[in-house]
Structures are given as structure tokens and as C-alpha cells.
Design a protein around this nucleic acid. Structure first.
Length: 718
DNA sequence: AAGCAGCCAATTTTT
DNA sequence: TTGGCTGCTT
């Protein structure tokens, strides 16, 4: 049937749709790949097929992912399928690949070849610093918002000079953006968005370079296409030119990152711009039982503007979806723990069980209850290795030595560990630097003509850096890092600190990380230090502790994307939490929340539990909620309600649970019909606040949903 | 320079 | 309720 398929094992277990995708010839393609439909397999098989049938050489294609993990996995699978060395192949993340382009053409991109990459933390502190020198009030212009603004502009491919501003506020924002750009350029720093934008501009302006890569990469493959930003799409169009073929794999129903610039619309645009003949849909799911898939299908069916697909499986129905109603968040957590204990006794290993939640704040109650039951667990998220303060400090020494213009690195370490350099000496440095247009490091050298080995003050700092730099002569990278953490005083500092032992061991870990880095990829690099610095900012290091341990997995729904578990608990399914109340103010916000729910449901292989609590401690206050609307979107035939709670005895339960002595009894109950003299008839949705400041949320038939203060609301029973 | 009180905000976060 | 940040005190 498929004469064009080489007779190789890796292709025989593909289904018909997958084969169709893998073997497409001479056209750009959009593959709509549902959850669990074998998308990674299709992508890697496609690459193998292209190479094996000599359509293209391993170096004539480029494959783009969003995460390092996905890129790594892709390379691994290719290695398993083909007897080729994948080193040097252009497979990587958008950021990693753009970095590679920029490193190769640093001069053409107007960057020093020592340029450093800023992670989000670094970016924020540079923004704060810029705002300070501009005397911008950080109350009116919150640095976080400025960061969001700048990143948003870059995601759209906009330079500060190209933004149209109308009001004073946006004008100011843009001024900061402009100044920030200048400062980055001066220090030789590039943030994540800049990597992409700079690379885009390089292709745009430099015809020769663009042509070169257009000719070279005849096949461009993209994973998670629904998450691409406007800029990434423009970059793709530019790189593809008129003669390359794009193979994009994505799922519009799993687009959950619009708040970070992801633009689902790219899928429809691609269909048009790349003359996609027909979208290929992968709808057979190899992960979940049909009850789970039908639940997912039913929920997502409530969204409009989908490309449209329906997952199916031949795996059988499996268990019904179990729904649990908790009186409180504590009650909910206890149920989940009990259930996990039972499953564990039945032989399901803990790391195949996940508890998902909408927001990180929800993990606390869960953790607390799991902890007291003595079950091992692991929480995803939080600080990663290269984001830890002690690691960033050590890296900053490396950065400053590699690039003396890096004021960001300078400021981070000039007085850390403290060596008596106060704010006034720093201010005078900033003055000199501004006056002479030089870096802080050079300004520092002007103030004190001689370096001093006496262990304090600026002269000592200058001495120290030079001393370390001289000591680097003939050392390997791990030895350099070892030298830094000892000579800088970092190790001593943390050794003497009361809870510093973890930090010391992290610093030691950094030495081994450098050794591993050399062993793995870069033993023949001409600039291992620079490469390691890049690596540290692009690869935030997901070396989370106890990776292999058998532990319950706790994470947000967002971070569960791409993973799968035998058993999944989705907790906190209340109106206001999931869908999150903030999302209701955003355009298309509810649809994205629904996609989030879809992603969560499709993580489960065989058992799915959904739970919600009628009251929950949030921001230090008890909040009363209604079940999430998503629960009502599931056909009852798929569901088994584990318990039922009447609203009346719930109020008593809540009081027992939180033991609040003098909670004012309110007359209105959730779900009850009420009459308001102005707004007319409505239904009570929930409460918020405590007895002296209780507010009631009512959905009015005509006037919409409103929050009213109990004290003043003129309500009547119907 | 470290330690503490007071204030404020509080979805989601692949790079 | 919690964490992060600021600004004040020692």
C-alpha cells in the first residue's frame, strides 16, 4: 500500500493517518494532533522518513520545539530510528536555535560575540534598574507590568521605535522600553524575546544570510504549533521563504498559553499562507479509556471556533468519571489522600498518580494532608537549579569575567558576599559610568587606581576579579567554577549561614553540572565558558530532586501539558477557580479555561477523579463557591457521583471544619432565588468575606452577575 | 549589613 | 494566609 515507505520497523506501527502525515511530499502540512494521538512519534518518524528516503540530508532540515525536554526527546528517538549521529543537527527550541543563529552571525546581528542571555529574573532587575535611572515612579509603572509590556511588544515583533503611543501612560511605558533596549545593547545582554526578535531582524535585513538558510533548510518541522507567537510565526515565514516546506504539528484545543503571547490563530493563518491542501487530523488516541475521552470531547465541544476533531479509542470504556463534593478544601484533600492510599494498596505506583490544580496556591492544603499521611510526593514548579540565588551569584562571577560590560552581573556580585561596598560608592560609580558612557567595571577601575588585596572595598573587588581571572589560566571549566566559589567567598558565606548547607551543596552541584556539560556535548568547544553560560540561561535545569522516586505528582494544569498518568485527580473545580475569575475579564478567556480543563482531563489513562469544595480558604478568607460549569458540561452517563451534600448541612459542616465561633448566620443560601428592589430577580452564586464584611454574589436574570455588600443589599425572599 | 515590622497583592509561565 | 519587598532600626 505504501510503496514510498522504506521497509523499516519504526514505520509499521503507524496508523493510516499517521502514515499519511509522515510521507507527505512536496507540500507544507498542518497536522492537527489530538492529545495522546502519537504526535511526537509522527514528528520523529517524519524526520527519519525524510532522511531515509533521501529527500533531505540530516543537515538540510530544522526542527523546532518549545522545551528543551521535547528537543532532547526528539533527538533521542531519531537516534533510535536511524544509524546517524544527530550531533550538529538543527533540532532545538526556538530560543536555542535563534541563539545558535545569532552566535554564528553575531557581528551581522550587531551583537558582541560574548553576548549573554538574560532570564526573566535578570530581565526584571534590569528593568527596575533602568526605571531607577530614569526616575520613573514604580507605583504608577509596576516593573512587572513594564516587563509584560516589553515582552508583549517583542512577541509581536515590535521595537520601541515602531510602537504608536497615544496616552501618557503608554508613552512612558514605551520610553522605558527604549531605554531598556539601549541598556541591553550597551551591556551586551539579550533577553528571551530579544533572541527571537534579533534573529528575525537578522533574516529580514540580511538577504545573503536569509537566502543561505532558506536554501539550506528545505524542511522545517514545528512542534506545539498552537503555542507559537506572532513573532515566531513571522520568523517561520521568513525562514521558509517561497521554496521550503513546513510541517507543523499542533492542537488548537490545547492552546493554553495565550497570556504569554501564544496565538492559536497561527494555525488558520498557516493553512492560508502555506497553501495547506488539507489539514490532517490525528484523532485516534492511544492513551485514555473512552469514558475519559468522551468527557474531554463533551467539554471542549462547548467551544466555538475550533478547527474541530473528536478523539476516539479502541481501548474500552474504563471506569466512570468519579466526582467528589467536599464541604471544604480540607475535606476535599482528605478524600484525595484516602483514595490514593486505596489505589496504592491496589498496586498503582504513586508516580503514576497526579493531582492537578488551577493555581499554585491550592497545593498547600493538599501538601499538608499528604504530608501528614506519610505518603511521598513531589511538587512541580518552583525554583529550578539555575534560578537559585546561590547559583546565579556564582554564574554572575563567570559572566563578569567573560564580559566586563555586563553591569547586571557586576551589580549582583560587587557586594556579595558583602565586602563593605555601600550604596554611596555604587552611586558614584553609576555617575561615572553615565558621564563617560562606560561600564560599571571600567568606572570602578577609574575610582581606585590600584587593586588591593585587603579584604574590603572596591579595590579589593577589582583585585578579586582580576585574581580569579588570572587563576583561570590552564583550568578546565569545572575547575574555574570551583575556583570562583572558593575565592569569591561564596562558599564561606553560605557555610556560615544558618540554613546555608543546601546552598553549599548546590554550589558543589554546579561544579559537577559543568563537568557533565563538558562530557555530554562540548568537550571540543573553543569557548566552553561562553557555551556554559548560554546553557545555564537557556536550560533552566529541570534537575528536580528525587526524580525517580515513587511519589505522588502535584502540579498545575499548565505544567501537566504533555504528561500522562494512570490516575488523575483534578481538584478545585469551582466557579472562580476553574474557570478562574480573572479569566472572565479577558476576551476569549472562558474558552481558554475550557481548553485548560480539556488538557487536564486528557492527562488521564485509566481513572479520572474530579473534585470541588463548597468552601475554601483563599487569601486568608473563607470563600463559598459553586461547582464549576465544566462539571455540568459532562454527560451524566459518564459520571459517578461519589457523594451528595445538601446545602443546608454544608453550612454546619463548614463551621465544624474551620471552627469559626461567631460566624454570622446569613439568611440566603447558595442556589436560592432572591429579589432585589433595583436589579430584580436573581440566584445566589456565592459569598466572600467574613462576618463584618460579607459580600454576596448574585446572578440577576436581567442585570447580570453582581457582588453586593450584605449589609446594604436590599434583598427579599421570593 | 542584618534583622524586623509593616504594607501589598495574590492565575497560568515551555524559554 | 502567604510571600515579597521596602524602609527603618540596631
Amino acid at each position: 500500500m505504501n510503496a514510498s515507505l522504506p521497509n523499516q520497523n519504526q514505520f509499521i506501527d503507524l496508523n493510516e493517518k499517521q502514515i499519511e502525515a509522515v510521507t507527505l511530499q512536496n507540500e507544507s502540512a498542518l497536522i492537527l494532533a489530538g492529545a495522546g494521538s502519537g504526535k511526537t512519534k509522527v514528528l520523529t518518524s517524519r524526520i527519519s522518513w525524510l532522511i531515509q528516503t533521501n529527500v533531505v540530508s540530516p543537515f538540510g532540515l530544522i526542527a523546532v520545539t518549545f522545551t528543551n525536554k521535547a528537543a532532547k526527546e526528539m533527538l533521542q528517538r531519531i537516534t533510535m530510528q536511524l544509524p546517524i549521529n544527530t550531533r550538529g543537527m538543527w533540532v532545538g527550541t526556538f530560543h536555542g536555535l535563534c541563539n545558535r543563529f545569532l552566535k554564528t552571525h553575531a557581528r551581522d546581528a550587531d551583537l558582541p560575540d560574548t553576548f549573554q542571555i538574560l532570564d526573566s529574573q535578570d530581565q526584571l532587575s534590569l528593568i527596575k534598574r533602568t526605571m531607577k535611572t530614569m526616575n520613573v515612579d514604580d507605583e504608577t509603572y509596576a516593573p512587572k507590568q513594564v516587563q509584560h509590556y516589553i515582552n508583549g511588544c517583542k512577541d509581536e515583533g515590535l521595537r520601541a521605535a515602531h510602537v504608536d503611543t497615544y496616552d501618557t501612560h503608554s508613552k512612558k511605558l514605551n520610553e522605558i522600553y527604549l531605554e531598556y533596549e539601549k541598556q541591553c545593547q550597551k551591556e551586551g545582554l539579550v533577553d528571551f524575546g530579544e533572541l527571537l526578535l534579533r534573529c528575525y531582524e537578522l533574516f529580514e535585513k540580511n538577504v545573503a544570510i536569509r537566502q543561505h538558510y532558506q536554501d539550506r533548510f528545505k524542511h522545517i518541522l514545528i512542534d506545539e504549533f498552537q503555542d507559537t507567537s506572532e513573532l515566531q510565526y513571522k520568523w517561520l515565514k521568513l525562514l521558509a521563504g517561497n521554496s521550503s516546506f513546513v510541517f507543523a504539528v499542533g492542537d488548537d484545543d490545547q492552546s493554553i498559553y495565550s497570556f504569554r503571547g501564544a496565538r492559536v490563530g497561527n494555525m488558520k493563518d498557516m493553512e492560508r499562507d502555506f497553501h495547506v491542501k488539507q489539514i490532517i487530523k490525528l484523532e485516534q488516541n492511544y492513551r485514555s479509556k473512552s469514558n475519559i475521552l468522551n468527557t474531554a470531547n463533551a467539554i471542549i465541544d462547548h467551544n466555538k471556533n475550533r478547527l474541530g476533531k473528536n478523539l476516539w479509542t479502541s481501548a474500552g470504556e474504563g471506569d466512570p468519571i468519579r466526582i467528589y463534593t467536599g464541604h471544604t478544601d480540607i475535606d476535599e484533600a482528605k478524600f484525595i489522600v484516602d483514595e490514593i492510599k486505596m489505589l496504592h494498596r491496589e498496586g498503582i505506583s504513586l508516580n503514576h498518580i497526579a493531582i492537578l490544580y488551577r493555581s499554585n496556591a491550592q497545593s498547600r492544603v493538599l501538601e499538608h494532608n499528604i504530608f501528614s499521611s506519610n505518603l511521598p510526593y513531589r511538587v512541580y514548579g518552583g525554583l529550578r537549579f539555575f534560578e537559585r540565588a546561590e547559583i546565579k551569584h556564582a554564574i554572575a562571577y563567570l559572566r563578569l569575567i567573560a564580559n566586563k560590560n555586563d553591569d547586571s552581573a557586576f551589580l549582583r556580585i560587587v557586594n556579595f558576599p558583602t565586602r563593605g561596598i555601600g550604596s554611596r560608592s555604587l552611586e558614584s560609580l553609576q555617575d561615572i559610568s553615565r558621564r563617560d558612557g562606560c561600564s560599571l567595571w571600567h568606572a570602578a577601575q577609574k575610582t581606585s587606581n590600584q587593586a588591593s588585596a585587603i579584604k574590603k572595598g572596591l579595590p579589593y573587588f577589582i583585585y578579586l576579579i582580576k585574581h580569579i581571572e588570572n587563576g583561570f589560566e590552564g583550568l578546565t571549566l569545572p575547575q574555574m567554577i570551583d575556583l570562583i566559589i572558593n575565592e569569591s567567598g561564596l562558599k564561606d558565606h553560605y557555610t556560615n549561614e544558618k540554613d546555608g548547607l543546601d546552598r553549599v551543596s548546590n554550589l558543589n552541584e554546579l561544579v559537577s553540572a559543568a563537568a557533565t556539560f563538558l562530557n555530554n556535548d562540548n568537550n571540543e568547544s573553543s569557548n566552553p565558558l561562553g557555551d556554559f553560560l548560554n546553557y545555564s540561561s537557556l536550560e533552566s535545569g529541570d534537575m528536580q530532586a528525587s526524580e525517580g522516586a515513587d511519589a505522588i505528582q502535584l502540579m498545575t494544569i499548565h505544567s501537566s501539558k504533555g504528561l500522562e498518568f494512570d490516575v488523575v485527580f483534578i481538584s478545585g473545580l469551582e466557579e472562580g477557580l476553574c474557570p478562574h475569575e480573572q479569566s472572565l475579564f479577558e476576551s476569549k478567556g472562558l474558552e481558554e479555561e475550557r481548553r485548560l480543563m480539556y488538557v487536564a482531563v486528557t492527562r488521564a489513562r485509566s481513572k479520572l477523579y474530579l473534585s470541588y469544595a463548597l468552601s475554601r480558604m483563599l487569601h486568608g478568607q473563607t470563600r463559598y463557591g459553586m461547582p464549576s460549569r465544566f462539571l455540568e458540561e459532562i454527560p451524566e452517563s459518564l459520571v459517578k457521583n461519589i457523594n451528595t451534600i445538601s446545602f443546608k448541612n454544608n453550612v454546619d459542616q463548614i463551621e465544624e471544619n474551620y471552627s469559626q465561633p461567631s460566624q454570622q448566620k446569613h439568611t440566603w443560601r447558595i442556589g436560592e432565588s432572591v429579589m432585589h428592589e433595583k436589579f430584580g430577580q436573581g440566584t445566589v452564586l456565592g459569598y466572600e468575606g467574613n462576618s463584618d464584611d460579607l459580600r454576596i454574589q448574585i446572578k440577576f436574570n436581567k442585570a447580570g452577575t453582581k457582588w453586593l455588600a450584605m449589609e446594604y443589599a436590599k434583598l427579599f425572599k421570593r
